[in-house]
Amino acid sequence: MTITATPPAKIKNLPSPVTGQEIVLIGVIAVLWAALAVSTPAFLTAGSLQPLLVATAPVALVGVGMTIVIITGGIDVSVGAAIMVCSVITAKTLVGSDVNLAVAVLISVLAGGALGLINGFLIAYGRVHAIIITFGTANLFMFLGLQIFGSGTVNGIPGTLGFFGRGEAGRTLGIPHAFLITALITAAVWWYLRHTAGGRHFFAIGGDAQAARLAGVRVQRRVLLAYLTTGVLVGLASCFVIAQGTSTLDQSVGSGKELAVIAAVVIGGTSIMGGRGSVLGTFLGALLVQTVASGVTQLGWRSQLSDLFVGIFIIVAVGADLLRARARRSR
């Protein structure tokens, strides 16, 4: 694919549309799907693939925001707790007053946006590293969520959000809505990050924030925007989470999701050091993780094996990223 023999002094304007990591991921997923198709009775049927795509959606969607955040050199470990806050607010609203789908989504997205704004503001203007700020806000959000839960679960959630669910109401022409929405948002953000000046600024900040500032990038605004976007996507993903759960919501919702999301981002080839990455890779990373989880169950293997595989993927992906970085430096 590399036709241009770029002289070392000159920097390409745009990276290639698909990174090597993404091609590898597509290959791995294709091989896994093919292997599962022959070794299990029903992996490659609609009844299996549709739920798999639905289950991929929340992690992939939050992963879009997380990718932008990590590209700027930050991280957001509060997304699990934020999912909990958005889910419980939305679920309680659905139970308490008979709001429709659009209002429920709006409430969730507003709640997520507000939480994202808190993170973004503190990180952009507080000059403390993102992992410390979001670790703090994660605990605050957790407190907030548990307060809203009170001392019980939310029971009797109506099927309003079934539009995003696993069931019949969650599909059009066989395509799950949650997955379709996630794919469209991923595509839009992919285009924005790659083809607009504003999008490129995120990479510039992650590469060298000081240099970006001197080059005229409004660093603080961009950083704020990254966390705000993540918050908004957390809000939407929370609606997916409610739709995929049962009619009862308990306080374990969202727990550990920040690690699942970061795993998808890292497996997707985004550099944890910032400056490089792609939402397409994250999307594929989320799909790979869910494929492994479903595959392990459908093969009748022990449940913990999926943790083992995800761990291996992360280490391989980070290792590959470090090797690439070293290769770039030595050039």
């Binding site: 299996s48 739920p51 374990s252 727990s255 550990g256 459908q298």
Partner: peptide, 26 residues
Amino acid sequence: IVDIVYAGEDQAKATQMATDLMNAHP
């Protein structure tokens, strides 16, 4: 009993695993 799987306390995961089990054993 064809399989025993462990979902932790995660409802969505339990639901997805049950779905996978139904697909694994038509």
